[in-house]
């Protein structure tokens, strides 16, 4: 299967197989007018199977959001057809606006326009808690 190489843009590599559509939706890639390739179930030495997304534009990706969804993704920055930077993601210390606090006793349930912010409290078990009420992210 041939997919054109991109000239200026980003390649999201090492996406857990089957997760690419979730990332496509989170990054709202449907709103782009450039070429976007979703490649699923690619053979990978490291992972067995993986997904890849190629985006043919200089998109400013929120690496924190991406890191929260899958910290194992690699972000490759392509300029003039060549790889110029490889970014390895990690779990962000804090995520803002991505998760909603579901605790009905939390101030976020009543205070207008208050951003929902979660902080990483346990990296080994990937536990995020609301900064206001400390409820665990679901």
């Amino acid at each position: 299967m041939n997919i054109d190489s991109i000239q200026n843009g980003i390649v999201l590599d090492h996406i857990k197989a089957g997760k690419s559509m979730e990332i496509y939706n989170f990054l709202q890639l449907d709103k782009l007018s450039c070429s976007v390739a979703i490649i699923k179930n690619v053979n990978s030495r490291k992972m067995g199977k993986k997904d890849i997304i190629k985006i043919d534009t200089n998109l400013d990706v929120d690496l924190d959001v991406l890191g929260y969804i899958d910290p194992d993704i690699t972000v490759n920055i392509i300029r003039g057809g060549a790889l110029v930077e490889k970014k390895h993601l990690k779990l962000p210390a804090q995520v803002k606006g991505l998760l909603k606090c579901k605790n009905p006793r939390c101030i976020t349930s009543v205070e207008r326009e208050l951003p929902h912010i979660f902080k990483l409290t346990n990296p080994s078990s990937r536990v995020y808690r609301c900064i206001y009420c400390e409820a665990k992210a679901e």
């Binding site: 006793r105 939390c106 101030i107 205070e111 900064i131 206001y132």
Partner: peptide, 10 residues
Amino acid sequence: RHPKEGAPLV
């Protein structure tokens, strides 16, 4: 004092 959790942080 507030009945909602996190109100004083806000």
